[in-house]
Nucleic acid binder design. Structure first.
Lengths: 218, 218
DNA sequence: CACTCATGTGAAGTACAGTTCACACCGGAG
DNA sequence: CTCCGGTGTGAACTGTACTTCACATGAGTG
């Protein structure tokens, strides 16, 4: 995974350097820009994960910048710095997609907390988008497949017909269908002599399931 | 949930009472039978979760009993007690569906470990069968729904159109469709003024998801 | 009032997951 | 060899999840 990149777009030189210093000291990779215009140039080369943006700037203001930013980096998190916050201002910014606020002056730890929280959310959202998640959950959203997994987990390797009988499913091709599904998702394999068994990932899924079921049933 | 019931089918009076005493002392509810025949009578009234069964008994042997037992309680776990185990014996028993073995003489803790382990597996299998599991996983096996959940989780309550825009989905009826789905599964509700928010169960699901995604991505 | 935006419904269509069936192949028992 | 159980494939069918569209309602606003 690439390192997290944060853009700091702020016309006040001292404040900008100050923010950058704090972030770098905490292990974030940062890029400072004096204006929104220069930031736009840099977006393509190094898309940021998070942008810290001053509201009031010469040239293009923060508000105008946001839609352009979103266009090239739709998932980016935006933290806006405002000198003073009014309700109208906040509402307008939220509508544009600002994720968080810092009101000047802010403390070092306020900045860090805000940045960290937003990166957390970002990471979580990215995981939600992970196609692996899709596959995994689609795979598990079927009772027969879950039963196959749990059976293999408790009995170790089994041959096809033994499994079919154990599940009490009369149509063996149905079981075969789901086994193929599980195989194609690499949760189950067959060893040299045709016996089916869980892959390490399959076992992990079984763990997940037991976790889930405990979690669901309170 | 009903208390766990264990049948102890053993012709030797002392051994039977001994086993029962150990189990009762550990909080299990037990029923002792001297023969498989009497056990069959009792199956209907109090279906057991687990059966401890002597292999060699006068009258119907343990082996003959198993298919009959399975017929009325297909999910029951069977622990067989054998005086001496041969490979053939073990294989035959496994084919019939014996889940575990105890070789005489066994220690108190061997008995308890075996019983507990098999009850664990049983509980797990039952959870797999839980239709709630089906619903939950089907619900989550869709990326849009996961995104809705994660968005609501990070933003708190949101109104319909805000949510739709945030997800960058042009067709609002699509979002509505998934929201309805989430609502019908009680993961999401609407408060007095139409804003959507997570139910406690919805939040739990979000937890589950983040758990899962960490678990899946190693 | 006329207009727009937010919110929702219902019907029709599409895509895909899951089922079922007919059959094929192989290895071992009689 | 023939027959049978174990294992698997492919094609056709079914049903459900999802999408799309056309439209309805209601609240606010110029």
């Amino acid at each position: 995974m690439n390192k997290t990149t944060i853009f700091v777009i702020e016309d006040d030189h001292d404040l900008r350097e100050n923010i950058i210093e704090i972030l770098e000291a905490n292990g974030f990779s940062t890029i400072g820009c004096e204006t929104a215009e220069t930031a736009l140039q840099l977006l393509k080369e190094q898309p940021p994960d998070l942008v810290i943006l001053d509201n009031m700037m010469p040239g293009m203001g923060g508000m105008a910048f946001i839609p352009l930013l979103k266009k090239s980096c739709s998932t980016v998190k935006i933290v806006m710095i405002t000198a003073f916050s009014t309700v109208d201002n906040a509402v307008a910014a939220m509508k544009l997609g600002v994720n968080d606020y810092l009101t000047k002056p802010f403390r070092r730890d306020e900045l860090l907390v805000t940045v960290r929280r937003n990166l957390e959310v970002l990471k979580f959202e990215q995981q939600m988008d992970d196609p692996g998640m899709d596959d995994a959950l689609a795979c598990l959203s079927n009772q027969i497949r879950r039963n196959i997994l749990s059976t293999l987990s408790s009995k170790g390797k089994m041959r096809f017909m033994d499994l079919t009988r154990h599940l009490e499913i009369s149509d063996h091709t149905k079981v075969n269908f789901h086994l193929k599904n599980l195989k194609s998702h690499r949760l189950v394999t067959q060893d040299r002599e045709k016996a089916y068994c869980l892959t390490p990932q399959g076992e992990k899924m079984v763990d997940c399931l037991s976790l889930l079921s405990q979690h669901i049933s309170d």
